[in-house]
């Protein structure tokens, strides 16, 4: 479904992604594990087209700091130069880190905004599914999103990404800053999304422990480089992964 070949991303002279290649098959949950500033967000932003968007904005202002090299193919099509908006139309939906929601709008309005490219019937169907997946949100329909707790905001953010109609869902550190109980709920929700909606998922995390049980394959990245890859089970049993990313 997604093939990345020799991707390199520079911010001025700093190398954020270094010669990275990876593959994601349809229906998989793939984990991208790495510490802070390893390049996880840059990788997901580049897949979603946000890095390209930033590059274009900087070019307009007369300075260009960002260089993107390599090639990204999605469903048999080269999307390396495709604008972010068109990638969304094709079903690549990114849920950025730190629960990206519209704080001044209520929960329902957030979901309606997310349906910008989709039909009313799709919105209705997805809202029913989201309220089934996260019953807490149902009670807060009319509550301003900015007043929700961190975990509820993350649920809403994932709900919005679902309303946007993903075929490939990119979740950037969805568990960041959440309590272990909330993390468990979200992880099981993510599993359910793949199963019932047939969505392919890439999930990035700093700590491997909560996500390793649900991922089919994982990539460990350090300083923008791929250092290790394998199935969820292989990574779980790898002593290096255990010491570096299990937080023990």
């Amino acid at each position: 479904m997604l093939t990345i070949r020799n991707l390199m991303v520079f911010y001025e002279n700093a190398l954020a992604i270094n010669d990275l290649s990876l593959k994601v098959k349809e229906g998989e949950i793939v984990g991208v594990i790495g510490s802070n500033s390893a390049g996880k967000s840059t990788l997901l932003n580049t897949i979603a087209g946000l890095t390209l968007d930033l590059k274009i904005k900087e070019r307009r202002k007369g300075g260009e700091r960002i260089t993107i090299m390599g090639r990204i193919d999605y469903m048999g099509e080269n999307i390396t130069d495709l604008l972010a908006v068109h990638r969304v139309r094709k079903g690549i939906i990114l849920c950025r880190e730190r629960h990206p929601i519209f704080p001044e709008s209520d929960v329902m309005e957030n979901l309606r905004i997310a349906a910008y490219l989709r039909s009313k019937s799709h919105l209705k169907r997805m809202v029913a599914y989201i309220f089934e997946l996260f019953p807490a949100l149902k009670d807060y329909r009319k509550k301003r999103a900015g007043f929700l707790s961190g975990g509820e905001q993350q649920m809403l953010a994932i709900g919005m990404a679902l309303v946007a109609g993903p075929k490939l869902l990119l979740l950037d550190e969805p568990l960041l800053g959440l309590s272990p109980a909330m993390q468990t709920r979200l992880v099981s929700a993510i599993k359910d999304i793949r199963k019932s909606q047939g969505v392919t998922i890439i999930i990035s995390e700093q700590f491997a422990r909560p996500v390793l049980p649900i991922i089919d394959r994982g990539y460990i990245i350090e300083n923008g480089m791929l250092v290790l890859s394998g199935t969820g089970r292989e990574l779980m049993e790898n002593p290096e992964v255990k010491s570096a990313y299990f937080g023990v």
Binding site: V88, P100, F102, E104, S105, E109
Partner: peptide, 17 residues
């Protein structure tokens, strides 16, 4: 609604198309 979205957070709005 797109107006309200862009006014609040244009990058998040972009990720929704």
């Amino acid at each position: 609604l797109a107006f309200r979205a862009i006014a609040q957070d244009d990058v998040t709005a972009l990720t929704l198309g």
